[in-house]
Amino acid sequence: MQIFHPTTVDEVIGLLAAHDEARCLAGGQTLVAMLNLGLLDPPALISLRKVAGLDRLIRHADGGVTMGATVTQAALAAADLPGALAVLGEAAQQVAHPAIRNFGTVGGALCHADPAADLPPAFVAADARMTAIGPDGERSLSAGDFFVDYLTTALADGEILTEIRLPPPPPGSVGAYLKFARVDGDYATVSVAVTMTLENGVCRAARIALGSCAARPLRLDAADAALADTGLDADSVARAGALLQEAADPLADMRGTADYRRRIVPGLVARAIGAARAKAEAPA
């Protein structure tokens, strides 16, 4: 196994093209564990550690944010982003343990595309746009299209994720991330990421994405629509929860059976909506 330390994105792309089956190494918090366990033996690793500029988190004047792929989970957890984007910080704060967050990157967590991970549903709920660069140039994908299947993204061979763009959060928008796990720091049994825009107590728009409920973050137009233009009354919230429950197709593992996971979806959805709403009601 060879290890390379390129300093520009162009060099990374060149190295990926030149080495079949090569992998990017970001924080290593998943990749090195897999190497140690013998689950992976790539012929070459391309470290992103020295690539200039990838670790920047830029706050734009309009409230939007551009985040490089190697921003650490700890940096995102501490970023205190405004409005709906708070969902991202709350998710990052609940990833694993301090040591993992110190070195694990946002891009690594998104590219690993583990359906039980915390950042993928949060970035879907925040309506993030992912920038991918490969031999054919640059393209932009919605977070919804980025996650394709269990541990599978829409990145083509030779392509990398370079940055994530978050739209400016609308006035009155709020976000919350609720993780239900067996113990502190474990992967989620079920998690709920929610962003909403509220106007005088009326929900104008909502985006909900669930973790650990399908092969990729689970989002449903119908569930979001069930909340739009409502006062988030109990019936509307229950309707959104029931639609998500119906669509959930979770795996069974040591963190819960598929049936158990499905059963707790509506309750957790209601709690997450309540947590987000409480932020809108809290005096600024």
Partner: peptide, 28 residues
């Protein structure tokens, strides 16, 4: 040796880290 137990905890660049999850060649 996979990041779960914490018995390998060291400080890297002043921050708590898992020594088992850092590739030596990436520690220059």
């Amino acid at each position: 040796n996979s990041g779960v137990c914490g018995v390998c905890t060291v400080l890297v660049d002043g921050k708590t880290a898992r020594a088992c999850l850092m590739l030596a060649a990436d520690c220059a």
